[in-house]
Every structure is written in C-alpha cells, then in structure tokens.
Design a binder for these strands. Structure first.
Lengths: 337, 337
DNA sequence: CTGAAAGCGCTAACAT
DNA sequence: ATGTTAGCGCTTTCAG
C-alpha cells in the first residue's frame, strides 16, 4: 500500500546526495552543530525541506544512546488516573515544561499492565529517564526502573534514599495548617479521612493532622482511610457516621474524598458547615463542584509537574539539580468551614 | 553514575556467549521462532534470566522496521482530555486490547504541542500506526500522519475517503432515538445543545435530532453549540434561556454539556424534568453525578477503544479488517426526562 | 536447526 | 569545515 511505501523512505543519505554534501554534514545541521559553513547549511536545509526529511528515531537513538523521550509512570489504574484531577495537573505541568524542550513524554498507567511491559519498556532503552508519581509501598517494579534510568519522584519516595530526586509539596505542614484552621474556627472534635498509609502523601498528611491536634492538646475523634478516591471518601464518612460519635469538623486529605464524604453527609441530612465543617486538600476543580464550595489546602500540582520535568532534564543534561524540592501549600477559604 | 553504567549494558552478544550459541539463535528465541532445538532454547532462556537481558528497542526496531508501539493522538488540550470521561473510556478500551498484545501505547495530547512534535514523532518511525480520536476539521496535521503510518479513526473522519479505517458509534441514529424519546414523552417544543460542527460527531448528532423532528413534523425551538464541554453547555443553555422562548425538552449532545446546562437550569429555578426535560448522550459517569440522574444515550466508548486497537493491529499484521465499524447506542432512561 | 554476514539509518571520533 | 570510517544492537537472508 502507498502509505507503507512512503514510510521511512527518505534517509540522511538521500538528503546528503541532494545537498551535495556528506552525511556527516547533514547530521551536523540536523543536530545544530556550529561547525557548518553557511552555504552547506543552506543547501542542506533546502534538501531537508524538499525531501520532507525526518530523521529516523531508532537509528538516531541507537547511535547516540539517547532517545529524547521520558516516561511518566503512574502506578494506578485508568479509572483512578482519569478520575483524579491531580493527575491532569501533573501531566499538564510536565507537558508544559517539555514542550519547551525537544523531549517527548510517554505515559504509562502501569497498573493496567499485568505483564509489566512498563518496566521492560524502560529497561529496553526506550526512554532516557522517568518521572514516577503516586508511588505505593507495594510498587516494587519501580526499583527496577530506577536501576535502569534516572528517576524523579513526585512526592517523597516510599523508601527514601540519599540519592533520590523528588519534588514534593509540604504535606505535613499543609495538613497541619488545615487542621489549625478548623481549630481556629472553634472546632474541637476533629476527625480525618486520610489517604492510604501505603503512600507517603497519606502518611504525611495524617502526621500533620495529628501534630496540630497534639499542639492543641486535642484528641482525634475519628481516623478513616479513604484511599484518595471519591468512593473511598464516601465509605470512610459512612463508617464515621455509623460509629455514632460524629466529629464537628473533618480534615479530608483530598478534595475528591471530600466530595464523596459530602455526598454522604448530605444524604444523612447533615449540613456543611453548620453541623460538620469540612476542609479538603488539593484545590482541584472538584473543590468548586461541590455545594458548599470546599475550603481546602491548595497544592501546586501543575508547578510540581513542571519542576519534576525540569529536574529530570537537568539530570539528563549532566547538570546537578537539588535532590529535594518542597513546594508550599496555601489555605483557600471558601464555604465548607 | 552507576545507573548509567548499568544501562543497556547486556547485549544479545553477551547472552549468546553465556548460552554458548550464536546471536542468531538468541534472536530466534527472543522472537519466538520455532526453529530452535530444545537444548538451545533452554540454555538461552537461562542466560537471559541470569543476565537479566532486555533487548534494545532501538536496535530491534532499526533492524526489523517495526516498533511495536502505536500512538493515540488526541487533538485536544490537556484540560479537555482529562475533563471528559469519554477519553478515559477510550484509553481504557485501547489499553485493555493492547495489554493482550506486545504493543505499547504512546499518548499525544496534541494541542498542547505547538511545535508539532507529534507529527515528527510519528514520521520518525517511532510508532507502527496511530489511532486518532476527536478529530476536527482544522486538524490538518493528521493528514501528514496518515501519509506516514496506518491510521484508525475514532469516529467518522473529517473528510472520509474510501481507504479510511474507522470505528464510530451510530451518532445519527442515537440522536434520533433520543429525540424520539423526548417526543414520545409528550414534548413538542424541542431544542438541542449540539456539539461543534467542526466534528463529525457534532454534525451527525444534530442531523439525527433534525431527522426526528421532521419525521414528526416539528420545528426546532433552539439550536446552540455547546462545544462538548460543561462550560460550553452552560453557555448554550444561558443563550437559550435568554432568548425567552424556552423549549420544554432539550437534547444535549454530550453528558458533560448536559451537566453544564442543568447547572444553569437549576440556577434559573427551572425544574428538571417538570419544567424542562433533558436527555444527554454518552452515559458517562457524569450522568449519575447530576441531580436528577440523567437520561441519556449510552455509547460504548470502551468497546470503541478496544475495537480501534483491534482494527489497527489487524492492519499492522497484514490482515484485512473492515474499513468501517459502527457500534450501536442504547437509550438509558433515568430521571431527567 | 544453526551460524556467518550483511545491513537497518544514524552519530561520533578521527583525519584531513 | 568536511568527509571517512566505525560502529550502536539487533534481525534477517543465506548457506550449510
């Protein structure tokens, strides 16, 4: 078929012939080397344009040992990936930074991948480095990836080592501040819907919550794991209500879980914030999609994405970025507290 | 650094040496050729395991002229991509089919890509084929992609040609049936919030709406473009209300637009379905997230994703799939009509 | 069933 | 500044 016939047809050799130079010279202009005469440059450029030449990526990467591609690895399933706006912001941030470079992004939603194609893809030399977000304790395949290429983690890695690179938000501080906000509004019977404790973000936010409580000498009324999903948040809220001893305010470790929880609250006839105050974490679009609008801790996910990309590209360029970057959160007061 | 030192270190040559065979034989077992003796097979397998060998993808693809990768190209920006559950279903379907194969998916959210890296990525031989969804009239870069590799379209392509392969849902019929449902429920003053007319899905759904109206000899009360987004749906609804002559039922060409429209209706104090009936299109999770639950036409997006992958892999394998596959929609009656 | 040999299209020393 | 020469790691005839 004609499409196949056209494929990959024009090579550097043909461009060289058309331009009347050697293929080294063509390679030099393609790669932006300075050591090319203006005339050669011009005629090569014209030949490339005329022939519609695009360098073959496989050949280039085989010879140069670089792919100019990086992987974004998300150890979640498709539903969770698309269900949480956090990932949208991360991907946007990465894309935004990458678009200024000549790197390309390969996305792996790794839990939908029983055969672990992700790992062998990375180990096959298909990418120069990887960004890993939403890393759980059980995700051991990440270690094999990190052994093969430079990795930048989104969030503190599960088992942090000296040599790890990561970009995190200050989860502990953010959770602390959110909790303090609840306390300052006069609430004393506090509960939390936490993220999974298999994830550093879950652990750290719970820690912040508890630090605030103990600083004020308060006891926690309820702690339930909501798994960072809306359904999980709803379940957790149900468990809290079922127990009878309902808190008067609750710190929910993600906006999505807060949405789930608020649905349950509404169904139970409890008013927010009159009967129970709710504060979330993220400031994703979800925060504005609930009634009342959610008071929440904003985390700069887009910036986190950009920063991860920036650190990784620095690494690949042989620069020496800081190992750890911590971004600040910010209280956004709306109507739920 | 040690990670670099390890990278790509073990080659087919070393495996061959360890197994005491030639590299041809190693290649044969890696590629599942039948012509290998049991003993050779066994010792090569062991060597591969011991050395933790993963074939280099660039070298393999350079030699074989196949990448075992396909691209999913979405000419939208990140916000729209992540905002519409339709894409989540499509990606899940594709992933689901691909996970049974040895192909890998590369996702391109192409509108975030000013330099058109997507096109040159595809033209550089980085993928064997492409799936294109959400194709607009203005997306001319798709033509260059289709000239380079086999393409399967999600939805009728913008300028349909004999040789195009695509998997679509029966949009016209679906829209027709939705409209008829409105009519059968006794509504006579019908309007629609359409998708953009730069997209075949938008055109076809409007066509179905109009066919139903003319079959019943009814006039359309309102037609507004909602751009397949929640905000666009809200805007469209506002325009319809502003005009004064409010319909008693409305066919909205996507659930997401219906959500936007219903928000406006609620704010205007109009009850659904008492004051105005609403029917959507998609049956995405959004349909259950609104109050009242949305009556809608279900389209099988997950199956569409699977099918597109299946058609593309057939094409790449030299089989001869049907050029056109049309999937049926189904009325899902809930509370909004 | 197996090995030898010839590339795939490109980059990167090394000469000149 | 430019061309020549070796490969990069693999697949794929072609002999045997």
């Amino acid at each position: 078929m004609s499409t196949d016939a056209m494929r990959g047809s024009v090579t550097i050799e043909e461009v060289a012939a058309a331009a009347g130079v050697s293929r080294s010279t063509v390679s030099r202009v393609v790669n932006g080397s300075s050591a090319v005469s203006p005339e050669a440059l011009e005629s090569v450029r014209r030949a490339i344009g005329n022939l519609n030449y695009v360098p073959n990526r496989a050949a280039r990467s085989l010879a140069s040992r670089q792919t100019h591609a990086i992987a974004l690895i998300v150890p979640e399933d498709t539903t969770r990936f698309f269900g949480d706006p956090f990932f949208a912001a991360i991907v946007s941030g990465i894309n935004s930074y990458l678009s200024k470079s000549d790197y390309v992004l390969n996305l792996f939603i790794a839990n939908d991948d029983p055969g672990d194609k992700t790992t062998s893809y990375v180990r096959s030399g298909a990418v120069d480095g990887a960004i890993v977000v939403s890393h759980h304790t059980s995700d051991t395949f990440i270690d094999r990836i990190a052994a093969a290429v430079p990795v930048v983690y989104g969030g503190r890695p599960v088992r942090e080592r000296e040599r790890d690179y990561y970009v995190d938000v200050d989860n502990t501080r953010g959770a602390h501040d959110a909790t303090v906000h609840l306390i300052e509004r006069g609430h004393r019977r506090l509960g939390t819907i936490a993220g999974p404790l298999t994830m550093p973000a879950g652990v750290d936010r719970l820690k912040g919550f508890r630090e605030a409580l103990s600083a004020w000498d308060l006891d926690e009324v309820a702690v339930e794991d909501g798994n960072f999903t809306a359904d999980g948040g709803a379940e957790a809220m149900r468990r809290i209500l079922a127990r009878g001893d309902t808190p008067d305010a609750i710190f929910v470790a993600s906006d999505l879980m807060a949405r789930g929880a608020m649905g349950v609250l509404a169904a139970a006839g409890l008013r927010v914030p009159e009967d129970i105050a709710v504060i979330g974490f993220d400031d994703s679009p979800v925060a504005m999609s609930v009634t009342p609008h959610l008071t929440t801790m904003r985390q700069p996910s887009f910036a986190q994405g950009e920063r991860m990309a920036s650190v990784l590209l620095d690494l690949l360029a042989g620069r020496h970025p800081k190992h750890v970057t911590i971004l600040e959160t910010e209280l956004v007061v709306r109507d739920s507290v």
